[in-house]
Each structure stands twice: as structure tokens, then as C-alpha cells.
Amino acid sequence: MRVLVCIKRVPAPGARIAITADAQAVDTAFLGFTMSPHEECAVEEAVQLIEKHGGESTVLTLGPAEADEQLRYAASLGVNKAVLLPIDGPDWDPQRTAKSIADAITSIENAEGPFDIILFGNESADSGGFQVGVRVAYALGRPMVNGIKGIEVGDGSLLARRESDAGLDVYTLPMPVVLGVKEGLNLPRYPTMKGRLNSKKVQVDQHTPSAQPGGQQMVALQQTAEQASKTVILGTGPEAAGAVVDMLQELGVL
């Protein structure tokens, strides 16, 4: 089995998200970088699928040269191969990103054979466009369901589960297939020492993307309105229990 997983390098903000003076980007001066928790689960699933069914997994990202860090993180968990679509400057819009990824997949598949399963995150952590995976699947002519929280591979088909208002919906999809997954699909492992060492040796293949910009463009970032709140300190330690219960009584939740 061949599995591909697409991830995006994003900053990892803490208590608040600072933006640069020109409002064009998140101020990452004091931040580390990561990928979306949904994508961490996609990586874990790719590794588990190969452990179970044999074959090879590949991780792909379109981003700056520094995204090498996220590719190698995936490799440290057990992904076999890595592909970087290098870009300079700000993020590419979703249409341009998807076109570039679809082109790269086509060229990888022509050289190495088709992917049975391509995994995306349900949405990227930062821009949250809810579309790159859907667009790639359409370009490749493959079925795609987003929001997946359970995967079972059968013989030539795959069972995928997703939560809906009514309960748990099941999709029975033919392979090759594209899925967008949500956190909760599995519990991602942490890298081992051996995995970290192996990841340093993984070769990162580069495919230069060339797609044209699409029709959505970021103009500027802006902070959300902070509600000015003054915290009422009800007390310190267990002695505060009386004040807490008074407050609960006032709210009418007792």
C-alpha cells in the first residue's frame, strides 16, 4: 500500500497571537512551529496503515525551506519519504496551493506508482480554508470525504466514519481515495531517539511549484476584539469553596 499525507507548517502561538506591524503575518519572532493536530493524526494514521498493511508512506508540504523541520518530524515518527514544494514569501492561496500539490502528486505517481490513500487535515491550523484536500481530490478525479474520525481498510475499499448532527455517518469508499481527517482519529505517538536519528538521513525531494494565483487574497490580519474582563478572585485554596458555591447558587446552576 502507498499512502501520502499532506501537512502545513504553521506557527505555534501560546496565550495570544501577535501580528507584525504591517499586519501581513503572525509575528513569529518568539514562536516555534508545528502542524495542525488534525495533520498530526493524518501522519500517525499513515504510519499505522503501513505498519499494518505494508508498503510505503510519503509526507508532502508546500512551504518555505524551513518546513523541512515538519517533514523530518513526520519522518521521525516513521514516514518513509518526504517531498517539499518550496515557495518564498507569504502563503499561497488555496487554489494555487491545491493546483501545485495535485501537479506534484501526478508527477510522483507517474514515476513511482499511484497512492492508494491520500490524507489531509480537515482544515489547516492557521488559514482554515477547508478546501485544499477537496480541490486536490477533484483534480485527481478521486472520491474525497472530509471530517473523518475512523478509517478501516477493506479489500479495494475503505470504511470511513464521520460525526454528524444525527450520529456517526459511515462512508464506504473505493480506493484510490482522498480523506480529510480530524483530531481524535487516533492518538499520535511521540518520536523515539532512533526515529529522530533516522529522520536526519531521509532525503527530501523537491518539486518546484508553478501554479498561478487564485481568486482569494489576504489583505490584512487583525486582532479579535478583547472583552475587557476583570477577574473576581473568589479566594485561595479549599477555603474558597463557600464563595464558589455562593456564586453557583447565584447563577442558578445548583
Binding site: P13, I17, G128, Q216, V219, Q222, T224
Partner: peptide, 18 residues
């Protein structure tokens, strides 16, 4: 030109759609 949310609602983005 629209205002949209990023980061699940922690940040806003002015964005244009053509």
C-alpha cells in the same frame, strides 16, 4: 472584501474575493 476568521476564531483576516 470580507472579514473572515483564522485560527478557528482567534484571529481575523480581511480578504478579497474576485
Amino acid at each position: 472584501e470580507l472579514m473572515r476568521v483564522r485560527w478557528g476564531g482567534s484571529l481575523l483576516e480581511k480578504s478579497s474575493l474576485t
